[in-house]
Nucleic acid binder design. Structure first.
Length: 209
DNA sequence: TGCCAGGCCCTCTTTAGGGCCTT
C-alpha cells in the first residue's frame, strides 16, 4: 500500500527515545507515524519497542512510557524492520526533523536498511511562516493555530498526528496567502532553507515562475 | 584522559557564542 511515492503523499513521524543522542547509545522506544495522501490520513503506524536496557525516570515521566510497558515489547530491530516497510518510498516530515532523522538513520543502520525519501522539517518551516509566534515548539504551534488535539503529548502517534495537522495547516496558509494552486514537498523544503527575512520575497518570486 | 547531542539560526558574527528544538 505504501510502497509508491506520490507528489501528494508524505509520512509524518515521531520517535520517543531513551535520550537525545544515538551516538551516545540512546535508542528508540516508540515510533508513531501517519501517511498523508492528498491531505488526508490514510494509514498509521505505532509501536513500542524494547531498547535492551532500562529507561531512566526522566524519560518515564516525560513520555509516560514505563519500563514495565516495554518489558515484553519486541526489540528495536524487529519494530524498525516493520516501520521501514511502512515508510516505503515516501518523503518524510517531522517536527525538528534533524532529531528524528538521526534516530531513524541510527536504528536502520543496526538492521542494515535504508529509505529513499527526503526529510522536511515542520519546525523550520513554522519558524519562517509564523515568525510572530513566541516560540515554535510543537505544543505552541498547536495552540497558535488552534489545532484540535486529544490532550496527549510526548507520545509518538499523538505527536505525529499533531505534526501532520500542522503540516496541512501550513500548506493551507501558504497556499491561501500566496494563491498557489498547488504546493509541492520540494517547495516546502526550499521554504525551510530560506533566510527568515527573505521568505516572503522567495514565495512571491515562486508565483512569477 | 575526560568529556560528550547536534543542527539551525541570530547577532553585540564570520578567528564566536549562545538560544532554540527534539528525548
Amino acid at each position: 500500500m505504501n510502497n509508491t511515492r506520490s507528489a501528494n503523499s508524505v509520512v509524518v513521524l515521531d520517535f520517543e527515545t531513551t535520550g537525545l543522542s544515538p551516538r551516545l547509545g540512546d535508542r528508540a522506544i516508540e515510533i508513531g507515524a501517519v501517511l498523508l495522501v492528498d491531505g488526508k490520513v490514510i494509514d498509521q503506524f505505532q509501536k513500542l519497542m524494547n531498547p535492551g536496557f532500562p529507561i531512566d525516570s526522566f524519560i518515564e515521566n516525560y513520555t509516560g512510557i514505563t519500563n514495565k510497558m516495554l518489558r515484553n515489547k519486541p526489540p528495536c530491530e524487529e519494530v524498525m524492520s516493520e516501520f521501514v516497510e511502512f515508510i516505503g518510498g515516501h518523503n518524510l516530515v517531522a517536527h525538528n526533523a534533524s532529531f528524528d532523522k538521526r534516530f531513524l538513520d541510527a536504528e536502520l543502520d543496526y538492521i542494515d536498511k535504508s529509505y529513499s525519501g527526503n526529510f522536511a522539517c515542520s519546525m523550520l518551516i513554522a519558524r519562517r511562516i509564523y515568525q510572530e509566534s513566541i516560540n515554535h515548539t510543537l505544543g505552541e504551534m498547536v495552540d497558535y493555530k488552534c489545532i484540535p488535539t486529544d490532550g496527549v503529548f510526548h507520545r509518538a502517534l499523538a505527536d505525529s498526528e499533531m505534526t501532520a495537522k500542522l503540516w496541512l495547516v501550513m500548506l493551507d496558509d501558504i497556499q491561501c496567502q500566496y494563491e498557489f494552486s498547488k504546493i509541492s514537498f520540494d517547495l516546502m523544503k526550499r521554504i525551510s532553507r530560506q533566510p527568515k527575512k527573505k521568505v516572503h520575497e522567495f514565495l512571491q518570486k515562486q508565483l512569477e515562475l
